[in-house]
Amino acid sequence: MAKKVVATLKKEGGRTFAKVIKAVKSPKTGAYTFKEEMVPTDLVQDTLKK
């Protein structure tokens, strides 16, 4: 199933996506967790600014 998803993301004429991984610090414990998002490449900078 994963191969089909990758194949559709690389389709000609389709949008290209990037995986954004952000480290988020928990206010309660101080430990870091990672949040992963798939965003269109033109929105990567906007996503990282949030």
Rank of each mutant, 00 (worst) to 15 (best):
Y32N: 04
Q45S: 15
A23L: 02
T33H: 12
K3G: 12
A31S: 09
P40S: 04
T29A: 13
R15W: 02
F34S: 05
K19Y: 07
G30S: 11
K4D: 15
V6N: 10
A23V: 00
A23C: 04
K10T: 09
K35V: 15
K25V: 12
K35T: 15
K10C: 13
G14F: 08
T47M: 10
T47Q: 11
K4Y: 14
V24F: 09
L9S: 03
E37W: 15
G30D: 14
Y32E: 05
P40V: 01
T8C: 04
A18W: 00
V6P: 00
A31V: 06
E12G: 03
V6L: 13
K22A: 08
T8G: 00
M1E: 13
E36W: 08
A7C: 05
L48M: 11
K10W: 06
A2C: 12
P27A: 07
L43N: 08
Q45H: 13
E37L: 13
T41C: 12
V39L: 06
V20D: 00
A31P: 02
A7Q: 14
A2N: 14
R15F: 05
V20W: 02
E12D: 11
G14T: 07
V6R: 12
A31D: 09
A31G: 02
E37A: 13
L43T: 01
I21Q: 04
P40C: 03
Q45F: 08
T29P: 05
M38Q: 04
L43Q: 09
V5D: 08
G13S: 07
G14K: 12
K25D: 12
P27V: 06
V24I: 12
K49F: 03
R15G: 00
L48N: 06
G14D: 05
K50S: 10
A18L: 06
P40H: 03
A18M: 07
Q45W: 08
V20L: 01
A31I: 06
K22Q: 10
G30N: 11
P27L: 07
K50P: 01
T8R: 10
P40I: 00
S26M: 05
T29F: 10
G30T: 06
K49Y: 05
K4C: 14
A18F: 00
T29H: 14
Q45I: 11
Q45L: 11
V6M: 12
V39M: 03
T33S: 15
K22H: 01
K19N: 07
L9I: 05
K19W: 06
Y32W: 11
P40L: 02
K50Q: 10
V44Q: 02
K3T: 10
I21W: 01
K11D: 02
E12K: 11
I21A: 00
A31L: 14
L48Y: 08
D42E: 15
K10V: 05
A31K: 15
V24L: 07
P27N: 08
A31M: 13
A2E: 14
D46A: 11
E12W: 02
L9N: 10
T16G: 02
A2V: 13
K10A: 13
K50R: 07
